[in-house]
Design a protein around this nucleic acid. Structure first.
Length: 605
RNA sequence: GCCAGUGUAGCUCAGUGGUAGAGCAGCUGAUUUGUAAUCAGCUGGUCGGGGGUUCGAAUCCCUCCACUGGCUCCA
């Protein structure tokens, strides 16, 4: 037992209960138990660091989803990987002392005095935000920390510890302030659990899309081409093209109109849209021409172009909603430290569309987009995702364009639509786009990092900025509402997450190569090619591995390439007109005729 | 952009001041193969780029570039 929930509040097991209370005990298996365990471990880590590096100063040290961290200021002597073994060792040594975690209520003056004497300005700053009478210290061994708790009774159950990594982190998350060293770590009550966790991390690394992208020859980067500018190799292109075709077809069914727009636009376009003012300085530099004062920008978004398409002639209420769709490639100068495989790049293609509709149609259109997005995710086998509603930060309205009334309407439309379909959501203030609130679908990558995939945004503002109108039944001009949406988000990020989601074993309808025919020896190569052509005629994709290698080698190589079906052909198969089917990861499935195999695969598509 | 780390052959990696290495891949040849690596030979590197220290630098220092882990940012 690690902690107790008393009347809904998680507390120390050792803290006396002075009122009538409902009590729930938390063990390691509970989220609350782990959180308390890791929070206490953070204090143990701090005690360790203080013992090893006297004079070290402490920021904050909270538990996180997997483990905990502590932000520290080590002065002139940086922490490095070489320090890790000593830290881990000392941590366990201190844990074995079985120090009790003792809670103590202190006055603000007492707390300020303590940290002033200790010289820890970070704790003093934290104290500034706390009210007298609410302040508690926790003490274990030789370490005292400002902390509201709760904690486990003693360090005794902490049996295994691992420093996961060292990273920089700005104090209070503010890039203008000092950067502290963030020590990430995790602890367990048993060594075996730590071993299992480390094994899990290893397995996750194996499905990292950057690694699989290289192994499966899906995409590449080149220093000469530039940072964050992926190039899709033939197999990656085959995969991506199928994703695009799938969505294009579905969008046609749902009343979208495909368009194509250029990769650049005049600066004036982005002044109108507001992007110039908001992002001009942080974007790729403007493109100049021989003509004086002529300035173009690489397009960072497709919406301004689509607004121009909407506005190229008068629109009647009868033709709304207008749904303009484009797989549009955009370029954004992301900070160099942000680039990450295919998930964060500087040139990428959005499966973008902009829906222009009346206010009355807004809800239905939004619901339609929600349905499309969920249809797409389901088709790809994503059942684990969260939906995040991103609203404006009400305390920083100057970061956004548009009137309060428009924002109120837009935010309400998203909240209502999500509630209507029963979509579980979390709401984040301050995460909205500058022109409107968003509903984002978030998924996690193999290493637990969360990425935004599909996005739906309600926008009252760009239609105003572009002076977009339609003529209503009353023969008056009205302002349409705009929905920005991208079910995949971007082809790059979606592909990355898909690679990791299926560990490179793509669904049959998407995979670049569905089969490879493996002749047992070169006497059967001709038959192998016949098989391939028969299957190609049945609309299947694949090739012949006619290298002069043993069958065992060919099987191994093609298994590693995650080919769904290996078709082995030798003497027996040639005579019987069959193929021996070997399914990826599942071994020999026996012999069937080529037609039977084709039918079997068709049935699975 | 910031903090820390990494950069050696196509890939994975060894080499820490004294003649650049291994396995795999590739090429050539032999082998004609029955369900996850046949054998042999050969090729392949301005040790990320530039500058410096040194008799001598993959190795030490500076700088730039790229990548990795975070932070900040993300139209």
């Amino acid at each position: 037992m690690l902690a107790a929930k008393v009347n809904g509040e998680v507390r120390d097991l050792t803290r006396p209960i002075t009122e009538d209370a409902t009590i729930v005990f938390h063990k390691w298996e509970d989220k609350e138990g782990k959180t308390t365990f890791w929070h206490s471990s953070a204090h143990l880590l701090a005690e360790t660091l203080e013992a090893l590096f006297p004079g070290i100063k402490f920021g904050i040290g909270p538990p996180i989803e997997n483990g905990f961290y502590y932000d520290v200021d080590t002065g002139d002597r940086p922490l490095t990987a070489a320090d890790i073994p000593a830290i881990e060792q000392k941590m366990l040594e201190l844990a074995r002392a079985k120090s009790e975690y003792n809670r103590r209520e202190v006055s603000k003056a007492e707390a300020v005095q303590y940290f002033t004497e200790k010289g820890d300005e970070y704790k003093l700053e934290l104290l500034e935000g706390l009210e007298d009478g609410q302040i508690t210290f926790y003490e274990q061994g030789n370490f005292v920390d400002l902390c509201k708790g709760p904690h486990i009774p003693s360090t005794e159950p902490i049996k295994a510890a691992k420093i996961l990594n060292l990273a920089g982190a700005y104090w209070r998350g503010d890039e203008k302030r000092k950067q502290l060293t963030r020590v990430y770590a995790i602890t367990f009550p048993k060594q075996k659990e730590l071993d299992e966790y480390m094994h899990l991390l290893e397995e996750a690394k194996k499905r990292d899309h950057r690694k699989l992208g290289q192994e499966l020859e899906l995409f590449m980067f080149s220093e000469k081409v530039g940072q964050g500018l992926p190039m899709w190799l033939p197999k990656g292109t085959a995969l991506r093209t199928r994703l695009e075709d799938f969505l294009k077809k579905e969008q046609i069914k749902r009343g979208y109109t495909p368009v194509i727009t250029p990769h650049i636009g005049s600066k004036q376009l982005y002044v109108t849209s507001g992007h110039w003012e908001k992002y001009g300085e942080d974007a790729f530099r403007p493109i100049l021409t021989p003509a004086k004062d002529e300035v173009f920008l690489l397009k960072p978004m497709n919406c301004p172009h689509h607004c121009e398409i909407y506005g190229y002639r008068p629109r009647s209420y009868r033709e709304l909603p207008v749904r303009i769709a484009e797989f549009g490639t955009v370029y954004r100068y992301e900070q160099s430290g942000e680039l990450h495989g295919l998930t964060r790049v500087r040139g990428f293609t959005q499966d973008d569309a902009h829906i222009f509709c009346t206010e009355d149609q807004l809800k239905e259109e939004f619901l339609g987009v929600l349905d499309l997005t969920r249809f797409v995710l389901a088709k790809m086998g994503f059942d684990q995702f969260t939906a995040q509603i991103s609203l404006r930060d009400p305390d920083n309205k100057e970061k956004y364009v548009g009137s309060d009334e428009n924002w109120r309407k837009a935010e309400q439309a998203i909240i209502d639509a999500a509630a209507e379909v029963g979509l579980p959501t979390v709401t984040e203030l301050g995460e909205a786009a500058f022109y409107g609130p968003k509903l984002d679908f978030m998924v996690k990558d193999a290493l637990g990092r969360s990425w935004q995939l599909g996005t739906i945004q309600v926008d009252y503002n760009l239609p105003e900025r572009f002076n977009l109108t339609y003529i209503g039944a009353d023969n008056q001009e009205h302002r349409p509402v705009m929905i920005h949406r991208a079910p995949f988000g971007s082809m790059e990020r979606f592909t990355a997450v898909l690679i990791e989601h299926c560990a490179g074993k793509f669904p049959l309808w998407l995979t670049p190569e569905q089969f490879v025919v493996l002749p047992v020896s070169d006497r059967f190569t001709e038959y192998a090619h016949q098989v391939k052509h028969q299957l190609a005629a049945a609309d299947m994709r694949g090739d012949v591995d006619d290298r002069n290698e043993t069958i065992g080698r060919k099987i191994r190589d093609n298994e590693l390439k995650r080919i769904p079906f290996l078709l082995i052909v030798g003497e027996k198969e040639v005579e019987a007109g069959t193929v021996s089917v070997r399914k990826q990861g599942e071994g020999d499935q026996g012999a069937v005729t080529v037609a039977e195999f084709a039918a079997m695969v068709q049935a699975q598509l």
